Computed example of a mutant assay.
Amino acid sequence: MKVAILLNSSMANPSLSAIISKHELVGIGVGKTGGENVGLLADSIDAAGAPIYTFERSSHETEMSDWLRDSHAEVVLVYTFNFKIAQSCLAIPKYGFYNFHPGALPEERGSPLFWAIRNRQRSFALTIHKMTEHLDCGPIYEREHCRLDDSTTFGEALEHLGTISRKFTIRLLYELEKRKGHLRLSDQNAAMARFYRNPKRADIVVDWRRQTAEQVQALTNACNPFCEGAIAIIDGRETRILEASPIMLEQSIQGKASGVPLPQVEGDLCIVCLDNTVLRIDVLCDSGGYYSGRKWLSHRYRRE
Rank of each mutant, 00 (worst) to 15 (best):
E74F: 07
S15E: 00
L173A: 01
M131G: 03
S186E: 05
L173E: 02
I5E: 13
L279Y: 03
K22E: 15
F154T: 06
M131Q: 02
L105A: 03
F168S: 01
S111D: 14
G35Y: 14
I231Q: 07
I170C: 10
K130I: 00
G49W: 01
S17D: 15
T62L: 06
R147C: 13
M248R: 15
C146M: 08
L279P: 10
A213N: 02
Q251R: 06
L219C: 04
Q215E: 12
Q254D: 09
Y53C: 05
L279I: 08
Q251E: 05
E175G: 08
A244D: 11
L176A: 02
T62C: 02
L105I: 11
E144G: 04
E144F: 04
A47H: 04
C227N: 12
E266L: 12
L68D: 05
F55C: 07
Y95L: 11
G288D: 13
I117S: 01
A190G: 05
I140G: 03
H145F: 14
L148Y: 03
L279A: 03
S287V: 11
R302E: 15
L41F: 09
I233Y: 07
S58G: 05
Q121H: 14
R194P: 00
S10P: 11
L126Y: 05
R240W: 11
M64N: 08
A48C: 15
R57L: 08
P112W: 12
D268F: 14
D282A: 01
A193M: 02
V38K: 10
T163L: 14
M64L: 15
P199L: 02
L249G: 02
V206H: 03
G96T: 04
V78S: 06
I92G: 05
A232Y: 12
F55L: 14
G49H: 12
L183M: 00
G31Q: 11
Y196W: 11
H101Y: 12
A73P: 00
L183N: 06
N221G: 05
E238K: 09
W208F: 06
